[in-house]
C-alpha cells in the first residue's frame, strides 16, 4: 500500500465503499423520516407529542364528597390524615382524608355532594396498563407454551402410537387454522361452555384474559413442540445409545444427555416463536382483553392523535421483543459448550 500521497482509488478500494454505504444508510433513513413528516404536513396533521406522556402517567384529581347533608361535627387529626365527621339530622358519616387536602372547617354546613377535600395523585396511564397486560399475557403464555411444547415434542417422537398420534393431531389442528379463529373458539365456544359449567357449580367466571392466554399458549405449544422435536432429532443418535449403554433409562438419558444438548439448538427458533407470541397477543383485543393494542385504540379515539400513538404502540412492542431477544442471546452465551 502507498503511503504519503493520497489517491482516491486507494481510498475507495480500502475503506471508501464502506463509508459511502454507511452514509447512504443514514441518508435513506433521514429521507424516510422527513418524507413522512412532510406528508403529514400536507394533510395538515398537527403533531402533539406533548399529549402522549399523560397516557403513561398522569396526575389524577381526587375529590372526597359528602354523601349526606349536615354539619361538620369534628375534625380529628391523626398524623398525616384527618377524620372529618359529618352529622346530619339522623345519621353520621366519617370521612378519612389527607390532612393537606382539607377544604372545610368545623361547624360548616355541608350539602349533599359538597367537596370535603381534594388532592392530586400520580396514576399509571392506560398505555402502561395495556403494556402490563401484554407483558403478563405473554409471560404466562410463554411459560405454558414451553411446558406444553416440551411434552408434546417428546410425545411426538415417542414409540407409543397413542402419544404420537395425539401429538400429531394437536400440532396439525393448531398449525392448520388461523390464530384469530382459535381465539374465537377459545372465548366464544370453550369459554362460554366452561363459564356456564362454572356458573352451574356456583363458582365465579373466568375472565377473557385467561381464555386469551390459553389460546396463545396452546397455539405456541404446537410450534414449540415441532421446534423441540427438531432439536432432539438433531442430536446424533450415538448420544442416546451411549447413555443407554451405560444403563441409563430413557427419561434419564433425555434429561441428562439429549435435552441439555438440544436446548442450545432450540433457543434461537424458540426465541423467534416467542417474539411472534408477543406480537400475536395484540389479537386479544377482539375478545375484550385490554392489552397494548386495544389500549392504544381506546386512547386514539379520545386523544385524536393517532399518528403519535400508533408509533408509540409499535415502539413499546419493539421494546418487549428486543428485551426478549437480548435475554435469549445472554442464555445462548451462558450455555455455550466450554463457556
Amino acid at each position: 500500500m502507498r503511503t504519503g500521497n493520497f489517491s482516491i482509488t486507494d481510498y475507495l478500494r480500502t475503506r471508501g465503499w464502506r463509508h459511502i454505504s454507511v452514509g447512504l444508510f443514514f441518508v435513506m433513513m433521514g429521507l424516510v423520516v422527513f418524507g413522512l413528516f412532510f406528508a403529514t404536513k400536507k394533510v395538515e396533521y398537527v403533531w402533539r407529542w406533548y399529549r402522549v406522556p399523560r397516557y403513561f402517567v398522569y396526575k389524577d384529581k381526587i375529590e372526597i364528597k359528602a354523601e349526606i347533608e349536615g354539619e361538620v361535627a369534628s375534625i380529628v387529626s391523626k398524623g398525616e390524615e384527618v377524620e372529618v365527621t359529618v352529622r346530619g339530622a339522623d345519621e353520621e358519616e366519617v370521612y378519612p382524608l389527607p390532612a393537606e387536602s382539607l377544604r372545610v372547617d368545623e361547624g360548616d354546613f355541608i350539602y349533599f355532594g359538597d367537596v370535603l377535600g381534594s388532592y392530586q395523585k400520580w396514576k399509571v396511564g392506560i398505555l402502561v396498563e395495556g403494556l402490563w397486560v401484554t407483558l403478563k399475557v405473554s409471560v404466562i403464555a410463554v411459560l405454558l407454551g414451553i411446558v406444553i411444547g416440551l411434552f408434546t415434542g417428546l410425545a411426538r417422537i415417542s414409540k407409543n402410537p397413542a402419544l404420537r398420534w395425539t401429538a400429531i393431531t394437536y400440532i396439525e389442528l393448531v398449525r392448520g387454522s388461523p390464530l384469530l379463529v382459535q381465539i374465537f373458539i377459545w372465548y366464544f365456544v370453550l369459554g362460554t361452555m366452561f363459564n356456564t359449567l362454572l356458573a352451574k357449580q356456583g363458582l365465579g367466571q373466568l375472565s377473557p384474559l385467561w381464555y386469551g392466554v390459553a389460546a396463545l399458549a396452546v397455539f405456541a405449544g404446537a410450534y414449540v413442540a415441532e421446534i423441540v422435536r427438531a432439536g432432539i432429532q438433531s442430536i446424533h443418535r450415538g448420544q442416546m445409545e451411549a447413555a443407554r449403554s451405560l444403563g441409563m433409562t430413557y427419561p434419564q438419558s433425555m434429561r441428562y444427555i439429549i435435552l441439555p444438548q438440544a436446548f442450545r439448538r432450540i433457543l434461537p427458533p424458540l426465541a423467534g416463536q416467542f417474539i411472534s407470541l408477543i406480537k400475536d397477543s395484540s389479537l386479544l383485543g377482539i375478545i375484550a382483553v385490554r392489552e397494548l393494542t386495544k389500549a392504544t385504540r381506546e386512547v386514539v379515539t379520545t386523544s385524536l392523535q393517532p399518528f403519535e400513538l400508533w408509533f408509540i404502540c409499535a415502539l413499546l412492542y419493539l421494546v418487549l421483543t428486543f428485551a426478549l431477544s437480548m435475554f435469549v442471546q445472554y442464555l445462548e452465551r451462558r450455555t455455550a459448550i466450554g463457556g
Binding site: 446424533h236 450415538g238 448420544q239 445409545e241 451411549a242 447413555a243 443407554r244 449403554s245 451405560l246 444403563g247 441409563m248 433409562t249 444427555i257 441439555p260 444438548q261 459448550i337
Partner: peptide, 20 residues
Amino acid sequence: INKVREEMGMVFQSFNLFRH
C-alpha cells in the same frame, strides 16, 4: 434391560462422548 446394561460396557466406533 437397564440393570443388564449396567454390567456391560460398550465402546463405539465414533466415541459418542457426551459433547456438553
